[in-house]
Amino acid sequence: MPETITERGSRSGAESASGPRTGTGAPEAAPGTAPESAFEAKIAADERIEPRDWMPDAYRATLVRQIAQHAHSEIIGMQPEANWLTRAPSLRRKAILLAKVQDEAGHGLYLYSAAETLGTGRDELLDKLHAGRQKYSSIFNYPTLTWADVGAIGWLVDGAAIINQVPLCRCSYGPYARAMVRICKEESFHQRQGYELLHTLAHGTPEQHAMAQDAIDRWWWPSLMMFGPPDDESAHSAQSMAWKIKRHSNDELRQRFVDICVPQAEILGLTLPDPDLKWNEERGQHDFGAIDWSEFKEVLRGNGPCNEQRIGRRRQAHEDGAWVRDAAAAYAAKRAPGTAGPGEAAA
């Protein structure tokens, strides 16, 4: 039952959200005003910052870094799941997976679009991704070894993403927040299809159950790492929280995720691979085992199982698509005199 969401809700309203872009951002604030204090006042009042507003360079740079990494994660994230498109076990599952992978492309586009409002072009961001100068989520450097991994990604990886992203719908930067509203609506289908897939496997043959359990065993810990390093080691957290880009700490969100997953795993009939996982009556939360951050750092450093493969595929796809982009541009140029509005001189 994928579609729980159909309408567009009260998104950005009629304002020109991404609107006409101004070059490298805001015209400097009008003489006689203090742009910095106007910015701080908006943040303090929980108002949104919009593209043409003055903003500190560091705020802009932080957003570009975060939104770009987020956008890259969406499009790199298409790869591990696309790996199973041609081997989906039924037409139903295949259609669902196709729709999900297409959504990820869409999410990437919403986010690149949001990044562009900050004055950084999508081509520039893609170049940096291809050159390894910008990152994407480490989770996508793990392989999808079995069909059950598609379920584990939907339930755990998209589940973790939702926990991370829901607060971003209230992010202080308007275009990013609006993109997240749209993305979050679509993610819930992703998570449910994964959960349903795992539930089906877990209640199938012993082999299918084992396959589902194996997928959970491999994806659980990397999913917990998706929330980022512990609060006391997180380089950007404090400033991002002060700017209201980020609303909750990494550890807080991780805890929320664990507490949500435990009962869901019980209903699946699968075990989360953590012997230390148990309910703590006093805290009203689950205790869980120590995360192996050395693994996280290794993957981040480029030494995960699939780092090279992912970037290699991305570069290749970009290069393979060059002729399509060239053809579309050539076609547009050729037709331009005929279709352009009045006043447009023929080429």
Partner: peptide, 17 residues
């Protein structure tokens, strides 16, 4: 799924601003 990935990433040719 290489071809699909290409199509999926859509127009990759943008400019900001």
């Amino acid at each position: 799924a290489g071809r699909r990935t290409t199509a999926g990433s859509g127009g990759t040719e943008p400019s900001a601003d």
